[in-house]
Computed example of a mutant assay.
Amino acid sequence: MSRIRLTRLFTFEAAHALQNYQGGCRNIHGHSYRLEVTIIGTPIVDESHPNDGMVMDFKNLKKIVQEALIDPIDHALLLRQDAPQELVEALRQLDHKLVLTPFQPTCENMLIDFKQRLGHLLPEEVALHSLKLWETEKSFAEWYATDNA
């Protein structure tokens, strides 16, 4: 049976600041992100199965990614966990959606984090094939399972 790749596109808004960076991205700024999640697997061949002919129902993939990745960071400010404490406290007092990460919140590091969080949530009959995170209309980072085997 043929292996098939399925891709689902997600969009979210988020802001970040790159600590100790020497350019403009050291300041808090936002992006309209696009995330492509691609899985790979073999379509189910069982006429009695409700997902006959599918690798995975797109609806199920959407639910997993939305809950695990998108909802926690959509319209949030991502800062490295060692960001200035006075900034963190001020944002929390103002009830801003703040996500503190153990990594510099670059596009590349976000992909690594997404991969780690998604891997164990997918059904065992499918595998995460790739992730592509668009930070701007012209700039993106990619993660491929085959590059990390």
Rank of each mutant, 00 (worst) to 15 (best):
V99L: 13
K62L: 03
K132E: 12
T106L: 10
Y33P: 10
K62S: 07
C107H: 07
T11F: 05
K115H: 08
P72R: 02
K63Y: 13
V45T: 04
Q19D: 12
L98T: 08
G24E: 12
L98A: 02
R5M: 02
D52Y: 03
D147N: 14
G119K: 13
L118W: 07
P105G: 09
R34C: 09
Q85F: 11
L6Q: 13
C107R: 09
I40D: 00
Q66S: 10
E108Y: 05
R80Y: 12
W134R: 02
A17P: 09
S48R: 04
F58W: 12
A145L: 06
E13R: 14
L87C: 01
P102K: 11
D95A: 08
I4M: 11
L18D: 02
D95H: 15
D147C: 09
N109G: 11
L94Q: 15
E124W: 00
S32F: 09
V88P: 02
L128A: 03
W143Q: 01
M110I: 13
S32L: 15
P102W: 01
G23A: 07
P43L: 06
E135V: 05
Q81Y: 13
G53W: 07
L98V: 07
V99C: 12
F10D: 04
T38W: 07
L91K: 15
M56D: 03
S130Q: 10
H49E: 02
F140P: 01
Y33I: 07
E89P: 06
R5N: 12
Y33V: 02
Q116K: 14
Q116R: 14
P84C: 03
Q104E: 04
